[in-house]
Design a protein around this nucleic acid. Structure first.
Lengths: 143, 143
DNA sequence: TCCAGAGTTTAGCCTTTGCTAAACTTAAAC
DNA sequence: GTTTAAGTTTAGCAAAGGCTAAACTCTGGA
């Protein structure tokens, strides 16, 4: 016996809505995560470096940084380096944790280093807490 | 010893570009997959049903269908039901296969039915062939 | 000290994917 | 055969995230 059509529609639209919502936040997370990485690696994050690492034009970064500032994730004086707010650092930390769990999970599953690196970037943002826990547990069991 | 900064930037931008490219095709795939499902379940796919299942407005569906027609994935006469082309059916089949592998994989990993349903929708489009194979293999081993 | 090149910003454009409101078509009930 | 409700389409708007070209700022070397 299968569920009613109306119920099925509701469940399905819920999943699609979640995916659309994920897409809204995921770019912000990627930028913030990258900025944190640059600060740790090079001492500071400059717009140009962000553009190169993200594979987009400088102007695109400027526009994105404005949105991130509005969201209270980064701060920046004109022509100066990019800094993260407390919220920005928290988001970056969270993202790094998720990212590393997903990437290590894929490696533990037997996926090649190269593919694990690329796929984890895409998958990272669509994994719920529950799935993340299951992945972490799997990695632990393998070792 | 870690890789050079330039090389790291190239590898990283490559992953982000892949993710951006994925996003372009994934919505099309979702619509096509859903249309196939409606045809199988109800005998035909109407714009209204697509709107309800996707959780978007009717007008959004109309606009999307135009793009799908341009891409040669669907056909439709005004005020009539939506049909899939050969390419459309192929895409739907492929999507269903991927979707079911990912969902079953999550279930095998110990994720709840509810979360597996939602997460698989988001993850589906970011999984390479190699990872998909690894997931399928894992599911087989579990049974 | 000044000026040239690297880096940054602004301006203006485009596409995608959403929305609402209003107009139109179809089909079914009477 | 009308009428009406459900479904579909059009028109017009908005926000996100890309781009290029041109203008501006900063800084290090001569």
């Amino acid at each position: 016996m299968s569920q009613s059509s109306a119920k099925k529609a509701k469940l399905q639209s819920q999943a699609f809505k979640r995916t659309r919502a994920d897409h809204q936040s995921e770019l912000a997370e990627d930028y913030v995560e990258l900025i944190a990485e640059l600060i740790d690696d090079k001492g500071e994050a400059r717009g140009n470096d962000v553009a190169i690492r993200m594979g987009v034009a400088n102007a695109t970064v400027v526009k994105m940084l404005k949105r991130l500032m509005e969201r209270g994730l980064v701060t920046q004086e004109p022509y100066r380096e990019i800094m993260l707010t407390g919220d920005g650092w928290a988001m970056a930390e969270n993202g790094r944790k998720r990212h590393s769990i997903v990437e290590n999970f894929l490696l533990a599953l037997g996926v090649s280093r190269e593919v694990a690196r690329i796929d984890s970037e895409g998958i990272e943002h669509h994994v719920s807490e529950e799935t993340l826990k299951a992945m972490a547990k799997f990695v632990t069991r393998q070792n």
